[in-house]
Design a protein around this nucleic acid. Sequence first.
DNA 1: CTGAAAGCGCTTACAG
DNA 2: CTGAAAGCGCTTACAG
Lengths: 339, 339
Amino acid sequence: MNLKELSRHLGLSQSTVSRALNGYRDVSADTRERVLEAARRFGYSPNVNAHRLATGQSGAIGIVFPSGNDPLLDPLFTDFLSGLTNSAARRQMDVLVSASFDSAEASYRRLAQRRSVDAVVLSGPLVADPRVSLLDKLDIPYVVHGRTRAPHPYAFLDIDNEGAFRQAAELLIGLGHRRIGLVNGDLRQSFAVDREAGWRSALLAAGLVAPDALNDSDVMTDEAGYRLTAGMLSSETPPTAVICSSIFSAMGACRAIRDRGLAIGSDISVIAHDDGISSIRPETHNPPLTTTFSSIHKAGERIAEMVADLLGGKAASASQEVWPVDLIFRDSTRPPARA
Amino acid sequence: MNLKELSRHLGLSQSTVSRALNGYRDVSADTRERVLEAARRFGYSPNVNAHRLATGQSGAIGIVFPSGNDPLLDPLFTDFLSGLTNSAARRQMDVLVSASFDSAEASYRRLAQRRSVDAVVLSGPLVADPRVSLLDKLDIPYVVHGRTRAPHPYAFLDIDNEGAFRQAAELLIGLGHRRIGLVNGDLRQSFAVDREAGWRSALLAAGLVAPDALNDSDVMTDEAGYRLTAGMLSSETPPTAVICSSIFSAMGACRAIRDRGLAIGSDISVIAHDDGISSIRPETHNPPLTTTFSSIHKAGERIAEMVADLLGGKAASASQEVWPVDLIFRDSTRPPARA
DNA sequence: CTGAAAGCGCTTACAG
DNA sequence: CTGAAAGCGCTTACAG
């Protein structure tokens, strides 16, 4: 069933039926009624490809995968994507996932040239991210999940990474810790830089030093978490507490602590950032982990809305959000052993 | 730059240019050359929406997310999707992720009616999966990642779950274990049923019993892995070894074992199924975990190829693959403590 | 081997 | 408030 058939059934022109379907106001109330009723009865739904060709809009949000087997391609992405997709669907938008099998740049160019998407979401932004200027040049609207350096206002949704890690460090300082390690993510990524800044500022504000030996970063895997933490624990001034940038690195950190015969909480305090994925929950651990928490799923949902608003004409400068992060106190943070 | 402009530049008709671009053979070699060269120079790339409307093909593979915050929506999905997307891109296909914010059924109907995708991949198939008959009815080609019950041949790629878990159990039996627990995934899913069958058949073949007390299943999270394993360990006949359906449940299983003051390997052997995600690697654990291994990323890659073949006319009955699973022996499997 | 023309199924000024 | 018509940018019989 297509428009032509539907309008024939109704004895109306395609124009009128189209307008009724698309909610234009210059259609009489009962015509609209009849049309909608018939569309429902016949199970009519418009051919998206025709719609797109006619309007020049694709009705899709694009997102480009980090290349190949990049470990930055982490499991959190599933939750983000699920939020994005759900929320996009409510606004009749699709989500198009594009591979960067050659290069991310080529992928964006393809998306732009072929007009496959109306807008793009940029995840995992680097501190200085070449994709931003590319998207500017390609003139394709975008929303950044996180923040980056840009020469002009741009739409973004970020969490308060700096504030979260400052608070986490402050909590530990309040408990009496003096040597607080940071097991951070890859420092090319903005959030990692912000978290380091938060950690550092709390330490400095308390009159402590922020030594390089207690500040390390790598991909946020269990393995790297183990390695970085083990390194700190065997240094000359081992930490009495560590703050981890992800639940995966925290798993590794906990292993490293236990492998050294130490107990989490009573010997070494641990705080992890928790994005709220369901496969690993910090509250079910032993001891339950203190976390900085922000749902990455919700971020995905919100970003689809922001994309829709942007396409609806909202200014990028008015589409900027920084979400506060919850600090959830559990049993993995205690006063240091010999405080 | 569109087709019309490009052909004007070349002094050719749109038909000829279109045919040259699409690799039809009835175009003279040097015309083709000129056209391709010009297309490159002007950075021409066809408007996908027009292409789709004209051909009736969308050039996209659809995949529907499990609903809402389903814990079945696991982090493995990222790796699968990344493989699928990469491989699809090589064949000029997009991957469209669709939410089932109302119901999966509604999502598939929408995809079919709006002609947004040419084919669908069905992940996480249930033993009896209503989506199969729906897709049949909607007459949309599909490839199943896994297997399911269907009244006719269908395209699928599965791993040998039964064989993998049989081998895993056989390995443990060979080491002298008699009480081998199974920490399985949700039994509505086919792979979980197959894994149980493999576990059971190895036990029975060895003249052992396969007691219900050592056979439990739930979502494959760290938390559930902990809970199920803890339950078995506190039963009247605790296992001396457990086999886990995912690396996440294995994390929980290991915690449960340690929390009971037991050592992995020397006290309780552990085998996990490893899908090859990078954030948690079994070989970096202490002790390194013995695994049944199959890359879910590769499965995604292969499935995109199978979709392309299916759309190219290959019979579903000829598009059926079962991949063998590697059993990788590491240090978490040892003879039972008092064998 | 090449071109003129119709068609894919919508939308949207424009006229009434 | 409604309709006839042109247009979106491709593809593809068909004729030559």
